[in-house]
Design a protein around this nucleic acid. Structure first.
Lengths: 237, 237
DNA sequence: TATCAGATAATTGTCAACAATCAGCACGAG
DNA sequence: CTCGTGCTGATTGTTGACAATTATCTGATA
């Protein structure tokens, strides 16, 4: 019995769901890179499951925007061009703005923001890149959680996965720890103090600023490695 | 050969995709009401397809938030309570705000907004409820299209489907035609004139206002029909 | 009359096999 | 050398059957 089947049984989760979770994790972590070609037979053999079960898992990831289907030619992990990155951070800015606005009205906001920010400060002090990234993510998820908005949380998760995939596969660099803490202070304060309008503006500005860093990084990478595989830019519909 | 199979073959679309499309249309139009219980065997018999194909279709609709799975007890068309409706219009306000902001920068915005608004005015003059609804939707889709943002368009579509399902099944009433046109003027003007900040504020205000009408309608229905099936309100996570 | 336990039927979860589609490659002709 | 056509193998799409899970119902007991 494979590990996946054990995990699936323990968590009372279907095998196709467990397979989707494992594949998602591999993609988001950069273990499976953008542009990688996947076939149902190959994945089924790897997981020791039937093609039908794997097919359901792949369809779920397609719904989350992590893979695309090449009809009769396999599936492919999405490659994100600069327009995609722009879409991700503009959408995330909008979602985080809404989340911050709602979070700023939650009775528990002060306590929970302090906890999350303390964790981020501790991570920044440790200097461990992985710990910093997790703490940063956790802070933003706290805001989304405080919003009490399931649909927002779902969409935020989908966008966040694609952002993490991009960062994991593109050698995106972390900002300096001191700068990281400083950049979060306006947002944390606005939410904790309960100012919805300010919280929304800070959240949007924060995401937009992070996104611009990503865009500059992408542009810089273009000049150091010619990306022949980059698809043509999507225009307006 | 069923009609679905013919449509599927002509459109070069898989059967599970075609089945999902047909089910989605039935749900969104109110033909299949919230709370309806669906089973894989029953739907498979109705469409003359295998359970596996129907299962894939149902999983797709689950991903779109239109149905939920009751493990070993069938699937169920979602019922939307007041918290769900609040989630829908706040998320839509956020998405439309982003869309309007971006649309306000598109070179073709003036021409396309004029066309869409003219269609809405003609529909309002006709007094045909269905035509008005379609023209209203089309105007908002024009704004989203002008944004040139695929991920926003996808999420907007998912949210829009749930809103339409709610409206179709709850006897939501349309605003008076004159009021409808008047309510759209600020948004249309801000986008057409190319003022991103104003467009964003107008779009958010417009969606929020529409959402509040929905909420009031829901509250009014509560007093006329006791909704015993309404699930408990979701709290913050 | 209410609750608990056991059994059955209803429903989903998974699989292997076959059907359908087409990507890619090879060969021939211009 | 390039382009077009045909064929094959690779891959997905779909199916029916069986396994697994559990919801529901019935009977017995307190």
């Amino acid at each position: 019995m494979t590990a996946l089947k054990m995990v699936s049984a323990v968590a009372k989760r279907s095998l196709d769901r467990a397979a989707a979770d494992a594949l998602r994790q591999a993609i988001v972590s950069g273990e499976v890179l953008p542009g990688t070609r996947l076939t149902e037979m190959e994945i089924a053999a790897q997981f020791e499951l039937s093609r039908g079960t794997i097919r359901a898992a792949l369809q779920r990831l397609m719904g989350e925007g992590l893979i695309v289907q090449r009809p009769y030619a396999g599936w492919e992990v999405v490659t994100l061009n600069s327009h995609d990155v722009w879409e991700l951070y503009t959408l995330r800015a909008s979602l985080e703005g809404l989340a911050a606005r709602l979070a700023a009205r939650h009775p528990d906001r002060r306590a929970r923001m302090e906890i999350a920010f303390d964790v981020l400060k501790a991570a920044a002090a440790s200097g461990d890149g992985r710990e910093i990234t997790e703490a940063d993510l956790s802070l933003h998820k706290t805001i989304v959680s405080l919003a009490g908005h399931q649909r927002l949380a779902s969409q935020y998760e989908v966008v966040g996965q694609q952002v993490r995939m991009f960062m994991a596969s593109s050698n995106a660099i972390l900002p300096r720890s001191a700068m990281l803490i400083e950049n979060h202070i306006p947002l944390v304060t606005a939410v904790a103090e309960g100012d919805p309008d300010l919280a929304e503006r800070c959240a949007s500005a924060h995401s937009t600023s992070s996104g611009e860093i990503l865009m500059r990084h992408l542009e810089a990478q273009k000049h150091t490695h010619a990306e022949a595989s980059e698809p043509p830019k999507s225009g307006s519909r």
